[in-house]
């Protein structure tokens, strides 16, 4: 069985241990939810998987040569780019503008394409962030609290769009509410 394998991952920040000998296996092409209390190290784990952080000890395999898309906990939109430019900027595809427009439409952001981040509500920014992550694509899609700031209707819609675009991809999501994903087959990785 192919997948991402972590063995005895340890990570500390300023003497505070965040991850302590964490081992897990995430199967390729499946949806895995990472759950756990606040401050337990879920985001740190995502950052290690994405390569933004290095573990102090332990090793993680199965990421070699994989393209990873990351929806950060913060939207991290470029403030000087419009919503559609923020989405297009991560792609080198010739039809990126058309794809971005479709994504915006799917996420009910048709009229917001030319707005700048400071003109968007929190929920809108989040959906632009989701669109950007999907636009970038990749083999592994990492989502850190993907539905933060979304109302239930937009949450359902966003979930549907994400799962629709990530068929057969490895999706790893940190969420405080695993129930949102109940209609999709998933594994749960609980950090305690």
């Amino acid at each position: 069985m192919n997948g991402i394998k972590a063995e005895n991952l340890c990570k500390s920040f300023g003497g505070k241990t965040v991850l302590d000998r964490l081992s897990f296996f995430i199967e390729y092409g499946k949806l895995t939810l990472i759950v756990g209390q606040s401050g337990i190290g879920k985001t740190t784990l995502l950052r290690i998987i994405s390569g933004l952080e290095k573990p102090d000890h332990g090793k993680i395999t199965g990421l070699e040569g994989k393209k990873i898309a990351f929806l950060f906990q913060e939207d991290r939109l470029f403030p000087w780019l419009s919503a559609i430019e923020n989405i297009c900027v991560v792609s080198n595809d010739k039809n990126k503008k058309k794809t971005a427009s479709i994504l915006l439409s799917e996420l009910s952001l048709d009229g917001e394409a030319d707005k700048f981040p400071n003109e968007l509500s929190g929920g809108m920014s989040r959906r632009v962030g989701i669109a950007r992550t999907l636009m970038y694509g990749g083999d592994i899609i990492i989502l850190d609290e993907p539905f933060r700031g979304l109302d239930s209707e937009n949450e359902k819609k966003a979930l549907h769009v994400i799962m629709d675009h990530c068929k057969d991809k490895t999706v790893i999501a940190v969420t405080h509410d695993a129930g949102s994903f109940e209609n999709y087959s998933h594994s749960i990785l609980k950090i305690s």
Binding site: L52, I68, F70, F72, E74, R76, F78, W80, L81
Partner: peptide, 24 residues
Amino acid sequence: ILLIEASKMYRFSVRKKTMFLYLP
């Protein structure tokens, strides 16, 4: 720094980083 990290994550080329991150 968050945008720098985002540009790293999305594998921006030097030209893209200059045009869309540092110059603005």
